[in-house]
Amino acid sequence: MAEKQLSEQESLRLITEMIQKAKAGVHENGVGALLWGTTVGIAGFLGFCKYQFNIDYAWFDPWMLCAIALIPQAYLVHQERKQQRKAKSHQQDLLNAVWSIYGLSIFLMIFYFNIIPSATAAILKANGEEIVRRNIATGAIVSTSPNVFSSLSLLMILYAIPTLITGIGMNIKSMVVGGIINIILFFISLYVTTQYDNLLAGFVGIFNWFIPGLILRKKYLKAQQQQLHV
């Protein structure tokens, strides 16, 4: 770009062109959404298969995949950004904070699901009480551990939060649609068994992140390609 005196029209054209170029330079690459969508999708479908086909995964809980996958995902996303991001958008810090708090909340929810049953049982036991189940037909009474009902429905509420914030804040239509589908699936999950909660949570992974991730990745690669040809 050589130095020259600009007319008013040329100034305006230049401003518009540069603002558009800046916008194109900070495209989301979609890697994080793709990886997280794949993980939640696989975990949900493995969870469904466990009930549907009576598969015994022994010690392995398919939803542990999410906790395990958080570390390589954070590393991959960080590496790709480090290599390719030469400009930072205004929303980036805010969205990073939203997704980090979301990751932390998932960990805290998993702690909650694992600790509440035994902690509640201990409190009840200290008071000389316990929770029992009674068979209506036979009248048989069995001791049961207090558990969190439909825990996947609670997770689905959490899943919708960062997706809708990102979708609305960054004007990513596929994420807004994914977040709305997430909420619809949450309502359905309230009326079905844990088996189908798993299947619905798997679909949430697909609609919330996998499909938007594919769209973002395609746009990002297209923008990169266009920049190479400029």
Partner: peptide
């Protein structure tokens, strides 16, 4: 300046 107005910071 037009580039920088659209981003938080740039290399």
């Amino acid at each position: 300046v037009s580039l920088l107005i659209g981003v938080k910071e740039a290399e």
